[in-house]
Design a protein around this nucleic acid. Structure first.
Lengths: 414, 414
DNA sequence: AGGACTTTGTATAACAAATGGACAAAGTTC
DNA sequence: GAACTTTGTCCATTTGTTATACAAAGTCCT
């Protein structure tokens, strides 16, 4: 049986529980022998062999050559049929796009990032994304009809069921635009899933980062905005309309500045990137930090969050204070969420994740001061170590999660 | 086969998925015919009959007489064997205990409430609870070894895995006391589960109240303290150490009064029952409310939250303001949680639940003002209609949930 | 190099579970 | 009372799984 190419795979791909268990084993280990599967599943030799034969015939699995002998006959290795199709992950940030092409086992084959401005209209922006995907496909020799799943993360509130942005502050032109519909035009075979960017980062952290095997955690992205991805009982919690995790507009100070959402004193307006740079510019102009003034002049009247961080590293007191204040406000909000949600881990990512320990220490201090002891004794608060990978990895995982559907899931509660 | 009494049922009771499906059908409908089960499960006649026979032989099911003919032979009805055992639900509040005795299908057979002070030591308190249970058992002709499960809700942070209170502000003497161990002495056959009181109220609302079929909701209890029970994806979210939902100590005002937890401006210290009465006493004493002054004098220098509510109903402006202020603070905190968690329903219960619309309106207003539009368009905020039933119903449901364990639960994610 | 032992993979008989009728029992309706 | 329904049981057949035997392809030791 020669399965060099399997043209018509319907997405989503339905698997029964036995098939799912085999695929799961292969996902984790890459290549496995049938004896491995036998041992992992506890099935008999005959059933294991039979089910594997079926999966090979369906085109999901393929022979991957000989394995290493364990003191007896050499085993034949199995792997997921890479010719079956491909999956794309797209992480749209406020100022950049990350795209990855992966095989259906989730291994990333090609990766590409570029700067982009999300404030433009969706058609040219997504058109460019599609262009990038086609470019990556070319490098891997993959055709459009072989793309089976596409996961897309966008920086705004997503109605997950409809795959549409609702009242996105950062990208108003995208409101109600069908991202799924647009992308489907180029990839008719693909199953397109759109989610909030922080949710896919949380998913990435869970699948390939430090969030593996963690039941309850929060992934906090701090950049132009502030958002959270929530994992409860090992699953992404999206809430009833799919917009859970929007912590950027939790009130920190009722008398604070007006936020772009219309309210006053939102966390985002007071502690995110733009707030940090604005405070830094003030410090530069009012003379309290000659270092920041220098940086401001060098950059032509503009400061980026990285500049404030750099100043802080050089020992600038004003920059340090700005960062500490940010950390404390973020920590104050997180303290409430820790009381409410009782996670075991908080991962902090996004543009600000390189800010080093000053930020982290103030966040931790604020959380510890204001949270219940039982909630904080085993709580870890750290920067995510995945950097920009969290997003694309999660986007690929998201696509795969919805591409493969396990049939006949029994009810688990009585 | 006569199964009037089945002495030795080991708890927890293990069920395979087929058995679970039958029990589930019976739980929902009370009494069912085998044809009903056949149609609900999609199984063949023979298998259905076989599985039912097995369950009858094991003593779980029993014949419940003849059903109504549908135009043919009369069916034989099936119901859960009530002689198999009983389940107890105990809802311990700050100032009261509610106890219920139920059969293993969850129907409450006997119910009893009395005032009690939780600040005493656990031994006498729980001793009295056990006494009440024995009294209810006597009324139903049930022996101690027939009690298979006991669910207990306590008003404090519970380490759910250990079944122990950790640093409970309301009941310091209970710290690290093994409630499970104490109760087991009187009911050696029983499976004892201890949980936070708000979690069991949420569970009750989900099983027998308006929370049925709601995936994501928050149950907020406002009484002496303030706490929340969280349901995510249809399951109670307890967090990593089991103390999720402790929203009473989220900060409302950094410059607020000192809370018993040691921090300043906690929601509980500013908006719960004691804060309301204290403000009312002040209003009475400083002359801004003659009505409250009258009530205060009548009650001998003490005011209860109900008195403030009564004054408000009579049109007292000061009482109204106090309630509105409480509602606004609670609403401000809930607004943040709505952004974070995106529930579709918020149920408000506890002693303050009879406070009528003034409280509710201010909560709703605060939430609507400060939450994301996408999160509030389909959000309902209402008083729980279950009153004191939520607690015991949930406690019984909790006991049942851990009494019956479904074996061989397959992994649901790939 | 050859024999003893392992591991891997396949074929087959035996066992267990579930299905689909056939059929009897117990009703209703006209 | 005949015709039709619904309920419940029995049994041969199909389907799914396991256990066993056995062949193939190795390693390792003498």
């Amino acid at each position: 049986m020669n399965h060099t190419f399997q043209a018509r795979i319907k997405a989503p791909i339905l698997l029964n529980s036995a098939e799912a268990e085999i695929i799961r084993a292969l996902r984790r280990q890459g290549c496995v022998t049938s004896t491995d599967i036998m041992r992992m599943t506890g099935w008999s030799k005959a059933k294991t062999a039979q089910d594997i034969r079926d999966l090979v015939e369906k085109g999901f699995l393929m022979d991957a050559g000989e394995g290493i002998s364990q003191g007896g006959r050499k085993p034949r290795l199995l792997c997921i049929n890479r010719n079956l199709g491909f999956v794309v992950g797209v992480d749209i940030g406020a100022t950049s796009v990350d795209v990855a092409l992966a095989d259906i086992s989730g291994s990333i084959l090609q990766r590409y990032s570029e700067a982009a401005d999300v404030r433009q209209r969706p058609e040219p922006f997504l058109g460019r994304c599609v262009e990038i995907v086609f470019h990556l496909m070319e490098l891997q020799g993959c055709r459009a009809d072989q793309i089976l799943g596409i996961g897309i993360g966008v920086p705004g509130p997503v109605d997950f069921a409809r795959g549409v942005l609702v009242a996105p502050p950062l990208m108003p032109d995208w409101e109600n635009f069908s991202i799924r519909g647009f992308v489907k035009q180029s990839f008719p075979n693909a199953f397109v899933v759109v989610d909030n960017d922080v949710n896919i980062m949380a998913l990435g952290e869970q699948r390939a980062g430090d969030g593996i095997n963690v039941d309850h955690f929060i992934f906090v992205k701090i950049g132009t905005g502030i958002g959270a991805g929530i994992v409860s009982n090992g699953k992404i919690h999206r809430g009833s309309t799919g917009c859970a995790g929007d912590i950027g507009h939790i009130c920190v100070d009722k008398n604070g500045p007006i936020c772009r959402c219309g309210n006053t004193g939102c966390l985002e307006a007071m502690a995110a990137g733009p707030a940090i740079t604005e405070k830094a510019i003030q410090a530069a102009l009012n003379g309290s930090s000659p270092l920041l003034k220098n940086l401001l002049d060098q950059n032509g009247g503009v400061l980026r969050p990285e500049d404030v961080n750099a100043a802080c590293r050089e020992g600038d007191q004003a920059a340090l204070e700005i960062i500490r204040a940010s950390g404390q406000m973020i920590g104050d909000v997180l303290a409430g969420l820790v009381n409410f949600f009782n996670p075991s881990h908080i991962f902090i990512g996004g543009g600000i994740a390189n800010f080093g320990n000053h930020l982290l220490v103030s966040i931790r201090r604020a959380v510890l001061r204001r949270s219940l002891p039982l909630a904080t004794t085993h709580l870890s608060i750290n920067f995510s170590r995945m950097g920009a990978d969290a997003g694309v990895t999660g986007a690929v995982a998201l696509a795969l999660e919805y591409l493969f559907v396990i049939e006949d899931q029994p009810t688990t509660t009585l």
